[in-house]
Measured scan of single mutants.
Amino acid sequence: EEDDHMEFCRVCKDGGELLCCDACPSSYHLHCLNPPLPEIPNGEWLCPRCTCP
């Protein structure tokens, strides 16, 4: 299965362990989110761009 998510964080543009949005190709480091997440959430996760009205 091919993964179309970005291979770098949308905020800092660095690679590493990234959290991928379930609705778009964006990826983020947990510490780059505002507010930062302490751990990878269970289940579906939507990035700030997808949850913003």
Results as ranks from 00 to 15, higher is better:
His31Tyr: 03
Cys20Met: 11
Val11Thr: 10
Pro36Cys: 09
Lys13Thr: 05
Tyr28Met: 05
Cys21His: 01
Ala23Glu: 15
Glu2Thr: 12
Glu7Tyr: 03
His5Pro: 05
Cys47Ile: 11
Pro48Arg: 07
Glu17Cys: 06
Gly43Ala: 13
Cys52Ala: 13
Trp45Asp: 01
Leu19Cys: 04
Pro41Gly: 13
Cys52Thr: 13
Ile40Phe: 15
Leu37Val: 08
Cys47Pro: 00
Leu46Gln: 09
Cys24Gln: 00
Ile40Ser: 10
Gly43His: 07
Asp22Arg: 13
Gly15Lys: 15
Ser26Tyr: 11
Pro48Asp: 15
Leu18Gly: 02
Cys24Tyr: 02
Gly16Leu: 05
Cys32Glu: 05
Trp45Ser: 03
Cys20Glu: 10
Leu33Gln: 03
Asp22Gln: 14
Pro36Phe: 09
Arg10Tyr: 12
Leu37Ala: 12
Gly16Ala: 02
Cys50Gln: 02
Ser26Leu: 11
Met6Glu: 07
Gly43Cys: 08
Leu46Gly: 03
Leu30Cys: 10
His31Arg: 13
Gly16Pro: 01
Pro35Asp: 05
Gly43Pro: 10
Pro25Met: 08
Leu37His: 15
Arg49Gln: 15
Ser27Thr: 09
Asp4Arg: 13
Cys9Gly: 02
Gly16Ile: 07
Arg49Thr: 14
Leu33Ser: 03
Glu2Lys: 07
Trp45Ala: 03
Asn42Cys: 12
His5Cys: 04
Arg10Pro: 04
Tyr28Ile: 03
Pro36Ser: 11
Glu7Pro: 04
Cys50Met: 01
Pro25Ser: 12
Met6Asn: 14
Pro35Asn: 07
His29Asn: 00
Leu19Arg: 09
Cys9Gln: 01
Cys47Ala: 03
Ser26Trp: 04
Leu46Trp: 07
Cys47Asp: 02
Ser26Gly: 10
His29Thr: 00
Asp14Val: 07
Phe8Lys: 04
Ser26Thr: 11
Phe8Met: 08
Gly16Asn: 04
Pro36Thr: 14
His29Cys: 07
His31Asp: 13
Pro38Met: 02
Pro41His: 11
Glu2Leu: 10
Cys47Arg: 01
Cys12Asn: 01
Lys13Ser: 05
Leu18Phe: 00
Pro48Thr: 11
Gly16Met: 05
Gly16His: 06
Cys12Ser: 00
Asp22Ser: 12
Leu37Ile: 11
Phe8Leu: 12
Cys50Thr: 01
Thr51Trp: 04
Gly43Glu: 11
Glu44Trp: 04
Val11Met: 11
Phe8Trp: 04
Glu44Ala: 08
Cys52Phe: 07
Cys21Glu: 00
Thr51Phe: 07
Glu1Thr: 02
Pro41Tyr: 10
Asp3Pro: 09
Tyr28Pro: 02
Pro25Leu: 07
Ser27Ala: 13
Pro35Ile: 07
Gly16Tyr: 06
Glu2Ala: 06
